[in-house]
């Protein structure tokens, strides 16, 4: 499974919505993610992909769409 798919699966578990067609939606503005969801996302990415994302790294405006989350995750896997 590639990173994109993994991230989308994690997001689907968290938000209850399939986001593969809404890759540029702002997840905070449409209420799908909040601080709690964010932490769950970071922990889930950590357990599934082994990347450590400290809370400080999480700048909301840089993690607010599925595409940005996928890009950031891929960046950290390099």
């Amino acid at each position: 499974m590639d990173t994109k798919e993994t991230v989308l699966n994690v997001l689907q578990d968290l938000t209850g919505s399939d986001l593969s067609d809404d890759l540029d939606d702002n997840l905070f503005e449409n209420g799908l993610l909040d601080s709690m969801g964010t932490v769950q996302l970071l922990l889930q990415l950590q357990s599934e992909l082994g990347i450590e994302v400290p809370v400080s790294e999480f700048e909301r405006s840089e993690w607010d769409t599925p595409n940005k989350i996928i890009a950031n995750t891929e960046e950290m896997l390099k």
Partner: peptide
């Protein structure tokens, strides 16, 4: 408060599985 207290407490509670459900974690925090 969100970034330096709330998120960090949630992170800590979830990582150490202090509460069973994420909802309880969010509420307590």
């Amino acid at each position: 408060f969100r970034d330096y207290i709330y998120m960090r407490l949630v992170f800590f509670f979830m990582k150490h599985k202090v509460f069973k459900s994420p909802k309880t974690t969010a509420n307590v925090t």
